[in-house]
Design a protein around this nucleic acid. Structure first.
Lengths: 358, 358
DNA sequence: CTGAAAGCGCTTACAG
DNA sequence: CTGAAAGCGCTTACAG
């Protein structure tokens, strides 16, 4: 009778999997005791000799617990679903990096999901949410009209909304978000200090919570300076460079032939900022001579643009990490957590300069 | 006795999980039969009435199989590890998007890993590789000196290397990669057609397989035109915009005061291209008047740069999708697969122009 | 303190 | 063709 670890080899070319029972046998103890020792169960008070025998056997055999068996037993699997809206945005990437690193630090892993798929495709929704596929969900918020659905999910699965405070009042949803108004305020104050008195805003989609919060910071900073945003100086667009480009062209058309126009513009995010910067020359506007441009979110590209883009950085990486920590702490839902370490920070660069004399 | 689905509710606020036995009971059949019907086992030839009763019960109860139980039984879990080197690169993002979408189409999910962590941290390595955490691994290749380790992994777990052909001759490693030489050749021919006869190359790190392949395409296109790369016209740097910036500064210093210099430069990837474009003005070089710049990989940003960057696009999204397909097909290892649909495509933009007259 | 037993929720040979 | 039984690899009350 072959009960050696090699007896259960499946594919010929593959190394055989070592089970807990193999470790227990090698150490001459029962399976439960091996389990307790390996899991540092304080109740297991075996002699030091036994303990090391088990530990050494495990190390020698290269034992790694079977996660499926553990999951079935423990009803959790060490997996966190990270569900974002647009995988190609450098902004979500930072969030993802922070979440991944934090998860790894706690021996957890991230499973990638897509917001639209999750909300529209029922199969995807159900495997994620009811199939025990993941222990919890981090969902990118800030997009309009899907809050009820999230509340639904949260009823079945610990859920954290990142990127925007949740508008759902239900118990189980925690949200984690940066100081959006504060960040935009920093940008606005920077432009005001440079002498700009009329500042445009290229905001995100109309139904975006994030966009609204940024506009709030913008408006309140203007108000503090005795100014206010004129309706005709604001454009809504989507969160992309193509959107930023279209917005710049739209604004330039409005300004056609009028000397009375904004001398600076704030981009709702840095993708939009890139689009504005790219479109300005074609509109006959030189940045920063004719127009100062500043954007929310500092990404790897900001400093390499021509001219380098003034931005405010928000703690995206930390937000991802904190979302994971919240989920693992299984904290009571309903909390709204402002990620404020580090604080929003201004990165003044050549895309902003003193307002031209009037 | 309460055997209703609600009997197994755990957390009071959460919806109870429905088990297969609940479905079977509701449909009045045995658990095995319910399993067979739900899994479309052709051997199960129940009456149509029974079949629909089971299907309807499952739908009504909102049954979703417990993945942990399935995994334990079937020895696979529908998870694929995607292990990349730098999560923040827009290039890997495309790969990731393709892989995620393809995986989702086959009811699989992606678990995020980090190459450095996988190779250096033994715990991470072992949970991924021997802990049955994932069914297979997609690892980003092209970085020097870790091929033996990958071969090691592949012995335990189906593995596909993306991004570069594997230099490991072992049986089990399949690699999937785009036509790197072909792409760079397209870029080179474009510059040659514009009249450039001396072209510089800002390549990636010295030990990068990918970089070497691109240089091959570059050199062979030059050779076809009766030209060749001069040693002093090549700079190695890392795959980043900061690297590109440093390289541009280095080249400009070499060219100082000499009329005899390259009139065009090819960037090993588009991040490097961004850095070159950003650094050129500071070096007293106007693009494309003084210097044409072209780069490998077309990303969202290329067309929004000032000037828009000429690039060649490689099928990164498709490469990700194909890697997943390879893994799921459990095809025999050792194959090298060129992803050539779509073919590398030139995107001529304003960063390249006719060579200045000599 | 440790071991034997039960059980997590499935699937699949094996009988009937 | 269908059901009863076994078992995937763990952990944890429960006995001893």
């Amino acid at each position: 009778m072959d009960t050696s670890p090699h007896a259960n080899a499946k594919s010929p070319g593959r190394r055989p999997k070592v089970r807990l029972s193999d470790v227990a046998a090698a150490a001459g103890v029962s399976v439960p005791l091996a389990s307790r020792i390996l899991n540092r169960d304080p109740a297991a008070r075996a002699t030091e000799a036994t303990r090391t025998r088990v530990l050494e056997a495990a190390a020698e055999l290269g034992y790694v617990p079977n996660v499926a068996a553990k999951s079935l037993r423990l009803r959790r699997n060490g997996l966190i679903g990270l569900v974002v809206h647009d995988l190609s945005s450098p902004i979500h990437l930072e969030l993802m990096r922070g979440a991944r690193a934090e998860a790894a630090a706690h021996a957890h892993f991230l499973v990638l999901g897509d917001v639209d798929e999750l909300l529209q495709d029922d199969t995807s929704f159900r495997t994620f949410v009811s199939g025990n596929r993941v222990d919890g969900l981090i969902v990118q918020g800030g997009h309009g009209g899907f809050d009820e659905r999230i509340a639904d999910i949260a009823q079945a699965l610990p859920t954290v909304i990142v990127n925007a405070p949740s508008r759902v009042a239900r118990d189980r949803v925690t949200s984690v978000f940066p100081d959006e108004p504060g960040g935009t305020r920093l940008l606005t104050e920077h432009l005001l200090a440079l002498g700009h008195t009329r500042i445009g805003l290229v905001s995100g989609p109309r139904d975006s919570t994030t966009g609204m919060l940024r506009e709030e910071g913008f408006s309140s900073a203007l108000a503090d300076a005795g100014l206010s945003l004129r309706e005709e100086d604001r454009v809504h667009t989507d969160w992309s460079s193509a959107g930023g480009r279209a917005a710049m062209i739209e604004l330039a058309a409005r300004w056609q032939g009028s000397a009375d126009r904004p001398t600076a513009v704030i981009a709702g995010n840095s993708l939009i900022g890139v689009g504005i910067l790219g479109a300005a020359p074609g509109c006959g506007l030189s940045v920063p001579t004719d127009l100062s441009v500043a954007a929310v979110h500092d990404t790897w590209i900001s400093e390499h643009l021509v001219p380098p883009l003034t931005t405010v950085s928000l703690p995206l990486y930390e937000m991802g990490a904190l979302a994971v920590r919240q989920l693992l702490a299984d904290s009571p839902g309903g909390t709204e957590i402002l990620v404020d370490d580090p604080r929003p920070q201004l990165h003044p660069r050549a895309s902003t300069a003193a307002a031209p004399a009037r």
